[in-house]
Every structure is written in C-alpha cells, then in structure tokens.
Amino acid sequence: MGTGSAAILGTWRDQLWSNYVRLESRSDSSEFYGSVAQIVPGSPRFTLVRSTAQLTERTPALVRTDRSEYLLLSFMRVGHWYLEQDDRRTELLPGQFAIYDSTRPYRLHADGPFEQMVFRMPRALMECRMPRLSHMTARAYDSGSGPGALVAGFVNLLAGHAQSLSPDAVESFEIAGADLIATALALLGEGSGARSASLFERIVAKLSNQVLDDGFDFAVYARQQGMSLRSLQRLFHENGTTPRAWLLQRRLDNIASQLRSPAFAQRSITEIALSSGFNDLTYFNRMFRARFSATPSQWRRSTGRDKS
C-alpha cells in the first residue's frame, strides 16, 4: 500500500472511532478509499458510509478496553459486505439491513465498493425491550416489505428530518421508535427458529409502555393476552428471567436513560422515579445503586445535569 493510501486508511480509522466505537481496519487495496459522513453535522446518530474493499473488526481486546454500548443498524444501498457476530455470518445486499452489537466482537468484510446508511442507537434502549438481542444480530432483514419496511421507514424518515429538529426532539423520537423497532424485530425473529424468544420479545415489546404504572399487574396483563399467569411466568423463565426481575430492570433502565437525556433535564429525580412506577424512594435508590454502581444523583451528575 502506498503512502497516500496508508494515510487515507488512517483517516478512515479515525472516522470510525469518532462516529462508532473503537475498531481495527485494514485493506490490501493500493487504491483504498473510505469516508463516514454525518447526515446531521455534529451528530454520529445517522451516518453515510462509502468505502472500497476492506476488513473492519471489533476485537475482544477492543471490547474490553472500550465500553461503548451501541446497537448499529446498517442499511445497504450499493454493493455488499459480510457481517460476522454471535457465531453467524451473513451477506448484506442492497435493500437489506442488519444489526450488530458493540458489546461483543464482530467483523465487517467488503470485497468491493459499497455504500450504506448506519443508525447508531444506545444499546440500553433495546436491551430492556429485547433481552435476547444476540438472536437478532448478523442476520439480513428485508427493508422493502413486512416488519423490516417499518424499521427502514422509521429510520429513513427520522434521518431525513433530523436536521430540522432539535437534538432533544430527535432523542424523544428515537426513544418512542425503540418500541416500533423491537416489535418489528420480534416478528422478524420468528423466521430464525427461536419461537420462544420471538414470543417473549413480542410480549415485552407490548409491555414496554405499560410497566411504568405503579399499579401494573402481571396477572391482569396475562389475562389480556389470553394466557394464564403461570404460562407467562414460564415464558419469562425460559428466557432467563422472571416477570418481577424484568419489570425492575425495565423501570431502572428507563430512569437511567431519562437521567442522561436533555429532554428530562428539568425534571427532578423524584419526579422521574415516581412516574416510572416507584412509589418507595428508599427502595428505588437501593435498587438503582445495585444495578448501576452509582446513585441516581451521581449518574445524572456524570452528564453535567444535577437537578435532584
């Protein structure tokens, strides 16, 4: 590789690091080209990526040293590449999208030029809605029909209007859209062979907007879904949790997200906790610290917002 191409590859790595997570990238091409353009200047949420043949990796060592937690949704426009994660390898073609998770190693390999749009979203937004995210990574989904078209439509619409919206408004739409994305992915997951996981993900996606009510009752919800409470409990157990543990995690993750969101900067911690289903603040503070190794005030202070 010539000096000029080596310099371009170095710039490419810098762009990857500043917009996504720590990655290693290499190319054998003597005419390598790569660029990452932010659709909204100053924000890495939506990016347009163009590159020639190359291999980009999120190695185990980088996962250990860089704790960034994002989900990346790639929508292929031109060309193709291969994605490897969670013991799966898939080819992504134009009109398809795929998901990869920055908390685990992955590889992206392109053997020719390609162009894609990438939507970067906080992993916590989807983790509480889809506890088995590893079932959805490294699979190619159709952007043009069915549930996949809903995901692509939402992401493209938000990307197209993001520049005319305030950052707080974009973040609010992103939070609201997480339920749509989770529901669509759960439906798409039915084709992966993980039927119990797909049913579970549909159930928790429907639950997401209800569990913030301090009067929420799983027995009532089970009847509404046409199943017994015992069947609902068994479904949670098959997916590695219990209704009570999932409910607590969902509420705590919702609060943690709000405490770091500019959209909720004027709300006190007490208001946020009460509106998220906690009517015992002592219990809330104890559970929050156990999950995040920080008090709610410390968590909020780390973003420069300290309204208790």
Rank of each mutant, 00 (worst) to 15 (best):
S30Y: 12
Q96V: 01
L133K: 00
R291I: 00
F32D: 09
L150A: 12
T103K: 08
T295E: 13
P44D: 06
E271Y: 04
W81G: 08
D86A: 15
R301E: 14
Q224F: 04
S145M: 05
F154C: 00
A197L: 03
T103P: 07
G95K: 10
A184W: 05
G277N: 06
Q116Y: 00
P113F: 09
S25D: 10
M287K: 10
A53V: 07
Y82F: 15
Q15D: 11
R58N: 06
Y100M: 13
Y100A: 09
I181M: 08
V170W: 01
L207Q: 03
A256C: 07
L62S: 04
F46V: 01
P262S: 05
R132N: 10
H109K: 12
T183G: 10
L93Q: 12
R195L: 07
A256I: 06
A184L: 02
P113L: 07
K206F: 08
G79E: 04
A6V: 10
G2M: 10
R107W: 15
W12P: 05
S43R: 11
S228T: 15
N254R: 15
R202D: 06
L229D: 06
L252C: 03
Q116D: 09
A294N: 04
M136F: 15
D306P: 00
R120P: 01
N239H: 12
P113A: 09
P262W: 02
A178T: 11
F236V: 08
F154A: 03
R202S: 08
M227I: 15
L232C: 08
F284T: 03
M130R: 02
L55N: 10
G177D: 04
V170I: 07
L235H: 02
S192T: 15
R195Q: 14
F173K: 01
S228W: 04
M1Y: 00
A273H: 09
D87P: 04
G2H: 07
S30K: 07
D66I: 00
T270Y: 05
D306I: 05
N279A: 03
T295A: 12
L259Q: 02
